[in-house]
Structure formats: structure tokens, C-alpha cells
Design a binder for these strands. Structure first.
Length: 824
RNA sequence: GCCUCGGUACUCCAACGGUAGAGAGGGCAGUCUCAAACACUGCAUAGUGUCGGUUCGAAUCCGACUCGGGGCACCA
């Protein structure tokens, strides 16, 4: 039946790859979403790639893992959607374009084509009918639509704030582009600059982002949930009002320790806050304050990062009144208080807060202990006591413990109208505007008369102009601002002259909802249809790197909740299960050209074949762990695959033969392998699943050479099972085996063989007999032996009889059919 | 500094509180060969980071320490 030439008697991966690709193209085994498909659905999603060049070793691991999961569920009879697309906006394209004086579009679409063809060769089980790129106007149109919807709801707004600024590149930087205080591109020290920027109000969703994580418990890596919790950083405390001498309005401070209110000895306001400027203005220290403020602004992030740097500040020569005891507290301005957290002002309790203590010691301010602990006096030790203890020097709170004191003082403040319980979050609103060209244009028109006017829906998408007439070099302002034809427009409301917003959106906006688009990838009426998302979403299994543990996943969860509130979705968490794969290292560190340890995927594929590389990636260890390519043996994978492949040529029984009459031992091995491998795959222990297949290959080899022989039906059953299990990770080899076994393509949809539970029971197992926990003998018993029989058999064992020497055991613990422990 | 995860043979990694070794790499020997490679067969590697606790029994659970990885960055 096969036209395979005789010279391919040895396994030839290059030949096999070339043979199957066109067949798969024709069969399209991975199309999903036919309306009448009766199978239950499963949505398996790999994080989409950024088209920065050809695929690398990291992609090879990620897509191999995602593919195992997708192909497994297909074999298990599910209607699997396994789509792919490209996260195609972003700075590297723009930089490449500047360098070559070209359009970022060209670079981007060229790279996408390269990656796409590599993915096809890598045999990814993607549904190619659902592909889109975020830089397609058909996609980013919906970014703009969503932006306007958020704007309508007050969730997109503009404010002035200090952002990362690179003086070298003359541009705003995202936090991720600031590495150890330096610009990742030019190594200039990054400073802060005050700019008017667009924000998404993610803080409105802080509680839900935190509380809904309950649904993800046990389904997402604990580490990721923890990182998200810390990032949101909810804290419980109280807002307390302090009167200020010579000021009408009181100042509110936030504290998590209202119980230490009597221990406050001064107040600190953030140096860069409006309050600090106001308190200093016109006073004796105005000049000193302004000089200090300038030095704070000039400080680079690298200085800011040093947590052990000495505390600095200015005494504003103003006073606050402690509401609980009427004491006059000096007010200082310092950069150790953050302007954008809480109220930007704190009460300082040096005895019980390390930062306040450091400041008090530096400035010679008083330290008063109000919580008695058994630790040393903070004024002496220099270590603030932050634990629980008994309140002293605290009026009505004296004698209470910390928790009781917090409750009591909060109630007291509330009754007097001086304060109340409050919550704060570390999470800040999401800064979404970027002064770059290669992103989604913000669909807002600025009109002198009408203000911020959204671009009318029928004018979307608002497309990017051609790049050829625009200078893309960073100048501190979006390149779009210089595209006069594009920027100048008329106001949709009043018809007067107006300007387009020239900023573009953070590319994280693109990736915050892309998973909703795949089921509706060609819909030009809406971003996605309710019917499609109801069918396919939420994503059953998301696979990607842990680098996105916070931002991408948090933003996606935020968008999902907003869209849920808008009635567009019927769920509030987008990703039911999450798998984070580790990194691919070389000689212990991340691969990089400069380090000289770069391994090229294309070379590895050339040398060992696609299947062997996929197998090596999956077999290297647990998927969450980093893989050191130096420890991996792709040639070992090649060896194993040819060993498996050879089995398919040895089988002499006919396809469809009744397995029931086959060799029992081999049949049991086959069914156990199928059972164990399935369990291992479902618990993401792919390396263990492959070990089970290897065992079965070894057992089958032995059965053919020195056991039941090649003609035994059990051999066919085993080899078919091997082929199907291998199809998850080595699809080319598996297809080839399947064909040699006399079946028609494609094995991808052949189905996971039914496991016969009767064949999972062993005839006999070896049990150990311990005396005082030490092994003294072994017996073979039936797996269904009773505890009593088991115990009796153990006690009758000659070695044990000798060991006991007539003594009566104190205790006998029998765990049939594995172990008996006799305590004497 | 705070929070986290981990440490098993030469290497990568397995082991519901119950026989430490599933699988692989690397190694050695044999069969085949003129020889080698491949293939097949067989073999070995006394090792659970340290100390203590719980238990009939601990790599596994608990505590302390140590070493290594990751996250956060003065969040009051």
C-alpha cells in the first residue's frame, strides 16, 4: 500500500517529515468548531508569540507542551480548539524599522510568515483557520471599540502623573523596560517625568481580582496566585484625621496600626505631594524644601532601589495635632513616603515601624514605645518592634493586646468622627498610553470646545497612517503627533477643528482579550459573539511562561470582569487551568548571543528531527522546571523513536485482529501503560508519561525477540498503543508507525484505546516483611489477599520465624498486599 | 529586607507516610562485524543538604538551620 522506497528501512526523520506535512495540510485534522460536532468541547490555548524573528528553543518547549495537551484531549474524544495568532504590535518592530528606515509592518509580517511556517514544520496542532494578528486593523478596531466602551464607563481616564522617562531615548518607558533603574535599550539612568497619560481604572476591580482567585485555587500554580495577591496587596487599616496648625482642613493619614496612635511622634508627607508643597509654601523652609524636592525628582530609579540608603527629609516647621491626645507633632517632608499610596501622608511611630525609626534616628526625633513586647527597646536596638504585645502609654487602650486595641481605637475614632476603618491596595491604575507609532491609535479626538470626544463607532478602525512619511525616532512625543494629515481632524460633535490623540495603546491591551477573539476570528460586526464565547470559553487550559504571571494574566482577568459587567460574557475568570512552563537554559543560564550559549532551534531540528526535539523537551523533566539543554540528549530521543518505529515493522498479525487471545503479560503491560500515561498527562507529568511508553517499548521488544513472538495479537495491540501514545509528542513517527501497521491516516484522531480494568490487576505482587521497620523477608502474594491471611503468611515465613526466635510480637501492622511490619 | 519554591546515584529525573529507582543520559562487558558504528543482551553506580520532632515505619508530615532558584522593592 505504501510507495515507500526500500531504502527507508531505517528510520529517516527528514523523509518522514516531508512525507506527512502535505498529507496533514489536506486532511486538516485540527479544525474545530463545526456547528454539528457532538463531542464535548475543550479550549486549549498557548500564549501567542511576539514575532521577533524565527522561533527559538523557548517556543519549541512551550508549543511542544501545549501540543501534548491538545492532542491528548483530541485522542480522548473532545472537540478541541487549539488556536494561534500573533501579538504583533510593539517596540522591536519599531526599532527595526528605524534602523532600516522601513515600515514596521514589513518587518512584522515577514517575521509572522517565518514563524508560521516554522510552526507548521514543528507539527503544532493549531487550527489555522482562526489565525489573526493584533496589528491587523480588523483586530485593533476592537481594541478601539473596547477603549471607548471603557471610556463611557469611566474606566478609561486621563491624569497627570510621574512616569518612567529615559533621557537617552527621549521616551516614556514601561516598568518592564526599566532594568535595575536603567533603560534596557541605551542604559541611561531612568528618571521620572510628569506627563498627562491615559489610564484604565483596574483599581475599581481590586477586590474582585483578589476574591475571585478562590475559583482558581488548585487549578493555577500556587506561585502565580500568590504573586497576584502580593501585587494587588490589599491592606486593612484606618484613615485618621489630624488637625494642622494654621490650616483649615485637617489632613487624613492612612495606617495599618491605629493601635499605635499614642506612639506617633511626628508626621511625614510625601515630598512630591501637593500637600507638601502647600505646607512649605510661604514658610521659612520653602527654599530648602524646593531644593530637596528637586533632588528627589532627579534621583534615578537606581538610587530609589537601594532600600538601605539613608533617610532624608525636610522639617516643614509646621505642626499636626494628634487627635487622641492633643500632642503637637512636627511635620516633615520625605521621599520615603509615597505620594500615590494611601493619602500620601503618614503618622510616624518610630518605636513600631522600622522606616519611621530609621528616620527618627537620622533626624533626632523622639521614640515612644506604646506596645510592650519582650524585645529590646527600639531606641537602643535600632530595631522597631512590630509584633503583638500589651498597649502602654496609650490612655484608654492600656492593657489591651494589639488586635483588641485596633478594634477599640477604630470604633472610638469613628464615634468621634475623627477617622474610620479603611483599605488600601498596592495595585495602581494601568497606564495604557505610549508615545510610540507601532500600536493601536487611541480613538479619542481632543476638541477645544467639546473636550475628549470618542471617534464614532462607524469610523472605526482608526488606522495607523503609512510609516514612510513619519519620523519614528523617539522625541518624547508620539511620532503620530507629527503626522499632520492624520492628527488634524474635525470634532465629531461640533464639527470644528480638532486634534486626534497621538498616543497608542500599551500592547498589553491587545493581549488582554485576544483569547475571546479566536472563536469569532472573522466576525466584523463585534469583537466576539456571545454565542461563540458561550460555546468555547472560558479557556480550559492555558499554557505559557511564568514571566506573564502578573501583568498579562491580571489584565486579562480585569478585562474579563469588565466585559462580564457589560453583559458580553457569562463568566468572570478567563482561564480555568494554567500551566507555566519553565525556561530553556544552556549551561545553567538563559541563552543569549552575547553570552555565547545560544542554541539555534533550526540547527537542532536539522540534526535530530522535529519529533526528537519535541520529545526531548517534554521528557527533560517536569514542565514547570527549567530545562538545561546541556543535560538533554536529543540523540537519545532519536534512538528511542527509531526503536519504537522498528516495532511497527515487526508486527506480522493483521490489522483488526482480536487482541483477546494475545499474550496476557504483554496485554497487561499495554493496558497499564495506557492507564498510567493518561493519568500522568492529565496531571502534567509528561516526562513520566513518556517513561511509561519507554517501558512498554522495552517490554514489546522483549516479547518479540524472546517471548510470545511477533505474530501474537498482543504485540499488535502494544505497538498500536505505543503509536497512539507517541502521537501526542512525536506526530511524524506516530503517523509512520500507524501506516506501517496497516491503518489509514491520521493517527491524530485515531482515539485513545479503551483500557480494560480487568487487565490492570496483577496476578501476584511481592510484599515485604519488616521487623521493627527493617526488611527481613519477602513473599509473593495475591493482590486481593486479606489482612488476616497476609499477616499469617508473614508470621509463617521461615526467616521471620528465625528472627522472632519464639518471642511474641508486641504489635503487627499489616498493609495488604504490600507490607507487614512486626514490632517486637 | 519581606514573601515564596526547591535540594534523591556521575548527570537529568521517578517514588498514595510503607521494598529508595520508574525512565533516560553518560559508563563497562558480551553478541553481531575483518574492524567499527548501529542493533540486541547483560552489568554497575550505598545516594534522599544538616540537625531535631511526630510515627510501628519519614525522601515524603512538622520545626530550625543551610545552600540554590523565583517574586516584590520604603505600600505606613
Amino acid at each position: 500500500m505504501s510507495n515507500e522506497p526500500q531504502e527507508h528501512a531505517a528510520y529517516d526523520f527528514a523523509y518522514v517529515q516531508e512525507k506527512w506535512l502535505p498529507i496533514w495540510d489536506k486532511l486538516e485534522p485540527f479544525k474545530s468548531g463545526r456547528a454539528d460536532d457532538p463531542r464535548p468541547k475543550k479550549y486549549v490555548l498557548d500564549m501567542f508569540p511576539y514575532p521577533s524573528g524565527d522561533l527559538h528553543m523557548g517556543h519549541a518547549e512551550a508549543y511542544a507542551l501545549g501540543d501534548v495537551i491538545a492532542r491528548y484531549w483530541i485522542q480522548k474524544g473532545f472537540n478541541v480548539m487549539h488556536p494561534i495568532g500573533w501579538d504583533a504590535f510593539g517596540l522591536p518592530a519599531e526599532n527595526a524599522a528605524i534602523k532600516r528606515n522601513a515600515d514596521p509592518r514589513d518587518w512584522t509580517y515577514e517575521n509572522i510568515a517565518v514563524q508560521k511556517s516554522s510552526m507548521r514544520r514543528y507539527a503544532c496542532s493549531f487550527d489555522w483557520d482562526r489565525v489573526f494578528n493584533t496589528c491587523d486593523p480588523e483586530y485593533y478596531k476592537w481594541n478601539q471599540w473596547l477603549f471607548i466602551e471603557l471610556h463611557k464607563r469611566g474606566l478609561a481616564y486621563r491624569k497627570d502623573s510621574a512616569v518612567n522617562w529615559c533621557p537617552g531615548c527621549q521616551t516614556v518607558l514601561a516598568n518592564e523596560q526599566v532594568v535595575a533603574g536603567l533603560c534596557e535599550r541605551c542604559d541611561s539612568a531612568v528618571t521620572k517625568k510628569k506627563l498627562n497619560q491615559w489610564y484604565f481604572k483596574i483599581t475599581d476591580y481590586a477586590d474582585r481580582l483578589l476574591d475571585d482567585m478562590e475559583q482558581l485555587e488548585g487549578k493555577w500554580p500556587e506561585k502565580v496566585l500568590l504573586m497576584q495577591r502580593n501585587w494587588i496587596g490589599r491592606s486593612q487599616g484606618a484613615n485618621v484625621q489630624f488637625e494642622i496648625e494654621g490650616r483649615k482642613e485637617p489632613v487624613t493619614i492612612y495606617t495599618t496600626r491605629p493601635d499605635t496612635l499614642y506612639g506617633a511622634t511626628f508626621m511625614v508627607v510625601a515630598a512630591d505631594s501637593a500637600l507638601a508643597a502647600e505646607l512649605a509654601s510661604g514658610g521659612p523652609v520653602e527654599a530648602e524644601f524646593n531644593a530637596y524636592l528637586d533632588s528627589v525628582k532627579a534621583a534615578s530609579d537606581i538610587d530609589r532601589l537601594a532600600t538601605d540608603r539613608p533617610k532624608s527629609g525636610v522639617d516643614l516647621k509646621r505642626f499636626a495635632i494628634n487627635p487622641v491626645n492633643g500632642e503637637k507633632l512636627p511635620i516633615w517632608a520625605s521621599d520615603y513616603v509615597l505620594a500615590d499610596y494611601g493619602t500620601g501622608a503618614i503618622m510616624a511611630v518610630p518605636a513600631h515601624d522600622q522606616r519611621d525609626l530609621d528616620f527618627a534616628k537620622a533626624m533626632g526625633l523622639p521614640i515612644r514605645v506604646v506596645v510592650q513586647t519582650d524585645e529590646e527597646d527600639p531606641a537602643v536596638s535600632g530595631v522597631a518592634t512590630t509584633g503583638s504585645g500589651t498597649l502602654i502609654n496609650s490612655g484608654s487602650l492600656n492593657g489591651l493586646n494589639k488586635d483588641a486595641a485596633i478594634a477599640a481605637i477604630t470604633a472610638e475614632l469613628e464615634s468621634k468622627g475623627l477617622g474610620k476603618a479603611a483599605r488600601n491596595y498596592r495595585l495602581r491604575d494601568w497606564l495604557v498610553s505610549r508615545q510610540r507609532f507601532w500600536g493601536t491609535p487611541i480613538p479619542i479626538i481632543h476638541c477645544d470646545k467639546c473636550g475628549e470626544v470618542p471617534v464614532p463607532a462607524d469610523q472605526l478602525p482608526l488606522t495607523l497612517p503609512a510609516a514612510k512619511d513619519i519620523d519614528l525616532k523617539p522625541k518624547g512625543q508620539s511620532p503620530l503627533a507629527a503626522a499632520t494629515d492624520w492628527v488634524n481632524t474635525t470634532c465629531p460633535t461640533c464639527g470644528g477643528a480638532a486634534l486626534r490623540d497621538s498616543d497608542t495603546m500599551d500592547t498589553f491591551v491587545d493581549s488582554s482579550w485576544y483569547f475571546l477573539r479566536y472563536p469569532s476570528s472573522t466576525n466584523d460586526k463585534e469583537p466576539f459573539s456571545r454565542a461563540d464565547v458561550d460555546t468555547w470559553l472560558p479557556v480550559d487550559q492555558y499554557v505559557g511562561g511564568v514571566t506573564h504571571a502578573i501583568l498579562h494574566l491580571l489584565y486579562s482577568r480585569f478585562f474579563t470582569k469588565v466585559l462580564n459587567d457589560m453583559g458580553m460574557l457569562g463568566f468572570n475568570e478567563p482561564f480555568t487551568r494554567l500551566l507555566n512552563q519553565g525556561m530553556v537554559l544552556m549551561d545553567g543560564s538563559a541563552m543569549s548571543k552575547s553570552r555565547g550559549n545560544l542554541v539555534r532551534l533550526s540547527d537542532e531540528l536539522e540534526n535530530h528531527g522535529v519529533d526528537a526535539i519535541r520529545l526531548s523537551m517534554v521528557f527533560a523533566g517536569p514542565p514547570e522546571d527549567d530545562v538545561d539543554w546541556a543535560d538533554v540528549s536529543p540523540s537519545g530521543s532519536v534512538k528511542f523513536l527509531s526503536r519504537a518505529w522498528r516495532l511497527s515493522g515487526d508486527v506480522t498479525s493483521a490489522p483488526g485482529v482480536d487482541f483477546a487471545s494475545g499474550d496476557l503479560a504483554l496485554r497487561k503491560a499495554t493496558h497499564k501503560a495506557l492507564h498510567d500515561a493518561a493519568f500522568a498527562v492529565e496531571s502534567f507529568r509528561f516526562n513520566v508519561a513518556i517513561a511509561r511508553v519507554m517501558e512498554l517499548v522495552n517490554a514489546t521488544r522483549k516479547a518479540i525477540d524472546s517471548g510470545c513472538g511477533a505474530a501474537d495479537p498482543a504485540v499488535r495491540e502494544a505497538v498500536e498503543a505505543i503509536a497512539i501514545m507517541l502521537s501526542l509528542v512525536a506526530p511524524f513517527t506516530a503517523e509512520e508507525m500507524w501506516e506501517r501497521l496497516g491503518h489509514s491516516p491520521a493517527i491524530a484522531v485515531a482515539g485513545w484505546p479503551e483500557v480494560d480494568p480487568a487487565l490492570l490487576v496483577a496476578d501476584e505482587v511481592e510484599a515485604v516483611i519488616q521487623v521493627n521497620g527493617k526488611i527481613k523477608g519477602r513473599i509473593n502474594v495475591s493482590p486481593s489477599i486479606s489482612e488476616a491471611e497476609f499477616e499469617a503468611a508473614a508470621l509463617a515465613h521461615p526467616d521471620i520465624v528465625k528472627e522472632l526466635a519464639g518471642a511474641t510480637p508486641k504489635k503487627v501492622i499489616a498493609r495488604a498486599p504490600k507490607l507487614v511490619n512486626i514490632v517486637i
